[in-house]
């Protein structure tokens, strides 16, 4: 499954709820304000672990628009819109945490 998160964890609990129900094969993609979760100061250990296993992505345009590029946490992979589509195709059912 592909889980997209579009809220900052400082604003809503979407990321936490996602982490509570994500299974071992799913990946996370941060979009819109969700990319704030990809900044290193917002990092949770669970995100760090998932990122280390290559399962955390962030939408590049949203990261750049918010000036987060220099602060991007380790191992988070940036994707463009085509990469977003690839993730959807590869991981089947998508769940949005809004």
């Amino acid at each position: 499954m592909l889980h997209t998160v579009n809220k900052s964890s400082f604003e809503r609990n979407s990321l936490q709820s996602c982490l509570n129900t994500i299974d071992d094969t799913s990946v996370i993609l941060f979009i819109e304000d969700g990319v704030i979760n990809a900044a290193n100061n917002a990092n949770s250990s669970m995100i760090a672990d998932l990122a280390a296993s290559g399962r955390v992505f962030a939408l590049q345009g949203d990261v750049e628009a918010r000036g987060i590029s220099p602060k991007l946490a380790d191992n988070i992979k940036l994707v463009d819109y085509a990469g977003f589509v690839d993730l959807v195709v590869e991981h089947g059912t998508a769940v949005s945490w809004v």
Partner: peptide, 14 residues
Amino acid sequence: LKAIMSEQDVCLSF
């Protein structure tokens, strides 16, 4: 819930 969600074909969030 994790197991139930992973069986779904479509998940719509509100």
